[in-house]
């Protein structure tokens, strides 16, 4: 039987890509001083720390962290609310199919991009330096971050809507506001709500560590106990926040699944 010749694609490009990737990975591991053997040898130390945190955690400390945890949840709620509320009108202005002006949505896009690029923790430490410590600085940081995130996701959704409905309304003589109210909003609102909830999930996690720079919430208690090496209390804080985040995630993602 004759062999059927199989034409294989040229391998040069693939090999070059793999080589570049390998170079990048090995290079960065070397640059960062990553030593796999050292990690393996010292793994025991991490185990000992985990042991001091969780075997057993100091559960008598639990009543002391309910208040900071409540503050964390409040910060996340307020930050998400402010950020997402501001995001909706800005997203409409930024989408390139509602208002067709490059002068408007070009700069807006750059600003939104900058907001999203600066990590919430850095924003928070900036605001702590300006407004002083406390949840207020944290809330502003979360608001700005949520605003950038939700605006971006929402304007991309607006740009991807079914334009037929808009044209149908325009052909009936509807003005811009009518188009917005009856053609765009109904199409994007479920997505927007879903993005807001997603932002809330991200914010709960972010709010839990913001206290590390003095911006309120459970992170402050965490940092304090870590500095005093009360590892069994740190363990309690980790377990408690873990469950709160897990519960909120489960609720939020089940709502999101039903929305979209």
């Amino acid at each position: 039987m004759d062999k059927i010749p199989v034409l294989k694609p040229k391998k040069l490009k693939r090999n070059l890509t793999i080589l570049t990737l390998l170079f990048l990975i090995v290079g960065s591991a070397w640059f960062a001083g990553f030593n796999f053997i050292e990690v393996m040898i010292n793994l025991g130390k991490g185990g000992r720390l985990l042991g001091r945190m969780f075997l057993p955690p100091d559960l008598s400390y639990l009543p002391n962290i309910v208040d900071p945890m409540t503050e964390t949840v409040r910060m996340a709620i307020v930050g998400t609310f402010i950020g997402a509320t501001l995001a909706l009108p800005i997203a409409v202005l930024t989408a390139n199919n509602f208002i067709k002006s490059k002068l408007l949505h070009g700069p807006l896009r750059i600003i939104l991009n900058i907001f999203r690029t600066i990590p919430a923790l850095v924003l928070a430490s900036l605001f702590v330096a300006v407004f002083g410590t406390g949840p207020f600085s944290g809330v502003i940081a979360l608001s700005i971050f949520t605003f950038g995130l939700v605006s971006k996701l929402t304007y991309e959704t607006i740009e991807a809507i079914d334009y037929g409905q808009v044209e149908a309304l325009m052909s009936l003589g509807a003005n811009k506001m009518n188009v917005l109210r009856y053609a765009i909003m109904p199409q994007i609102l479920p997505q927007y709500m879903s993005y807001t909830l997603y932002g809330f999930e991200v914010n709960i996690r972010a709010a839990a560590v913001l206290g590390y720079v003095g911006a309120g919430g459970i992170g402050q208690t965490f940092e304090y106990n870590l500095a005093w090496r009360n590892f069994d209390r740190v363990g309690t804080i980790i377990i408690f926040s873990f469950f709160i985040v897990l519960i909120i995630d489960l609720i939020s993602s089940s709502i999101r699944k039903r929305l979209v």
Partner: peptide, 24 residues
């Protein structure tokens, strides 16, 4: 949302805030 706002005290901007913003 109302419950959230109730917990976030707005203590007013620090007196040095405007100076800090300028410096920033």
């Amino acid at each position: 949302i109302f419950w959230g706002f109730k917990g976030i005290e707005y203590k007013g901007v620090m007196q040095s805030a405007s100076g800090a913003i300028n410096a920033l």
